[in-house]
Design a protein around this nucleic acid. Sequence first.
DNA 1: TGTACATCAGTGAACGCGCGTTCACTGATGTAC
DNA 2: TGTACATCAGTGAACGCGCGTTCACTGATGTAC
Lengths: 235, 235
Amino acid sequence: MTSTMGTRERRRSEVTAALLAAAKRELARTGAAGLSVRAVARDMDMAPSALFRYISGRDELLTLLIVDAYSRLGEHVEAVERAVPRSDLRGRWRAIATSFRGWAVANPHEYALLYGSPVPEYKAPAERTNPSGTRVTNLLAALGMEDATPPPRPSIPHMPDAAELRALAVAADVPTMDGDRLAAGLLAWTALVGAVSSELFEQLGEPVARLDTLFDATVALGEWLLFGSPRDESA
Amino acid sequence: MTSTMGTRERRRSEVTAALLAAAKRELARTGAAGLSVRAVARDMDMAPSALFRYISGRDELLTLLIVDAYSRLGEHVEAVERAVPRSDLRGRWRAIATSFRGWAVANPHEYALLYGSPVPEYKAPAERTNPSGTRVTNLLAALGMEDATPPPRPSIPHMPDAAELRALAVAADVPTMDGDRLAAGLLAWTALVGAVSSELFEQLGEPVARLDTLFDATVALGEWLLFGSPRDESA
DNA sequence: TGTACATCAGTGAACGCGCGTTCACTGATGTAC
DNA sequence: TGTACATCAGTGAACGCGCGTTCACTGATGTAC
């Protein structure tokens, strides 16, 4: 009988959806640090106290927003990546990187919530944020696992030694991935985050405002880290 | 007669210093978003209204903190870099990168203020933050200018074409630097920021908590971007 | 050196504001018979 | 189908709080003669 919903049940899910929508509008307006229960209530034309029937407090509002943002980001990146032929590993990386940036630029406050400074006095509950929070990096991990060829790229000098990398692979939950490839993936990922954060948080100053070029270079760098020079493929 | 200061003048500079010190304590305690004039006054055992003799309002408090943080970061990185022999360009890069991270880890809230999400409703006045805000990147730029050898490293595939890079060099205020080197410097820089932000903002999840290894790899990557493989030097 | 006046630092009360959260309430929806 | 009671959603007033900023004030420091 879950197909027919009573008035109450239907209304409850409607209000829950409206609450999330209003919270997202508020987030886009003021950013995470300024988010307030009362402002969300105002946006919904409801009494502030009413929201406590749906959330336990301000912290849960933040958690809701984080989970939603991770989910929408994951959805977006997955969809773009899915459109690339499975065998085109390099293209899949490029799709991940560019769609990640695209979403961030379109949703700057959400991006800041996920990848910017932590909100003071708030600690996200890992058991709720983890499932959606790892979707993008999971795509990267899958890429690394599918690439069956032995590490093809010239080793970066002074790369941490194999033992440490093996320990890292185990710790990162991909114990069968070889260490070099894992390190390459993590490097590509942090470089990507750094490029997007630098762009969005406006740290590079006006001169470098048009960053498409720099971003292209970041994508190329990641591709090289993951798969080596294209020339190497024929070899 | 600037050598002798009257009671007023001396007291004024004492209080100004105490104000900055108190603001820094508050920043370390609550983070930038929660910073308040009243809390700083409380820390100084003064009436909140008294502070308005020294600052124009909350925004100036933030500006003061930003300038101070950039200055101390710059001081720290410059000091460490200065201790490396001028001819050891690779060592100078490594000194910049590791001391940058070291300062960030020791001063997480300051780092977040400079390189994390922007504070909502606050726009830093560029004319005040620029001089100190560019000290670290200036060190990098100097490094690039001193390295007289032609771009020694294997070109990263799909690197943006020369014309775009030339435009970027002009825009970035180092018109005489060749484009490849500039792109390499910017990549190394954003990768560094990404590695440090990922670590400090705890985005990589518990498993990868011990990140020394990953950071070493980031430094190695930057070195390779800037100077190529060590083998190339003999060639 | 002494006096009269001007400048300035710091106080304390007050302003209006928005915040998170609690609580007794009313009216509508659901359930048992 | 109709009635009696239970459950639940939403209201509105209230709580105590911290915030930024203004303002009239007092008492100390500096200046002119």
